[in-house]
């Protein structure tokens, strides 16, 4: 089963360049994100992605010396964004018909 991830519905993002501020409409909390986290969230706002796709996306953005850790970075970022309620995990049947 492939697990995919999507940005939570209704989040608002203020892009200030190096950092962004994201508003979660469910918790009414605002979160400060670094550029990598904001880029991942932006990608997930465009459509659901698998962990592998996110890893590939991050690998492109990382320095060559950091690329071996891309999978770990992607996993950690997804976990943190999910904990903040900014990313949700999609069950297979939720996107099977798309």
């Amino acid at each position: 089963m492939t697990v995919r991830y999507a940005a939570a519905d209704g989040i608002r993002v203020l892009d200030f360049g190096d950092e962004s501020v994201v508003f979660n409409p469910l918790s009414w909390d605002a979160h400060l994100l670094n550029a990598a986290a904001a880029a991942v969230l932006d990608l997930l706002a465009q459509g659901p992605r698998s962990a592998g796709e996110l890893e590939a996306f991050l690998r492109e953005a990382l320095l060559e010396s950091e690329r071996p850790q891309a999978a770990m970075h992607a996993q950690r970022l997804l976990q943190e964004l999910a904990q903040l309620g900014l990313v949700r995990q999609l069950r297979e049947e939720a996107f099977a018909g798309r």
């Binding site: 608002r12 501020v21 508003f23 009414w28 605002a30």
Partner: peptide
């Protein structure tokens, strides 16, 4: 002061930001 940091400091300095969100955020 980076803008995102300024945003956070202003929100903390607000009297009613929390009760007005998301309008306060915008």
């Amino acid at each position: 002061v980076p803008k995102a940091r300024a945003f956070a400091r202003l929100a903390v300095n607000s009297f009613n930001y929390e009760i007005l969100s998301p309008d306060g955020f915008d």
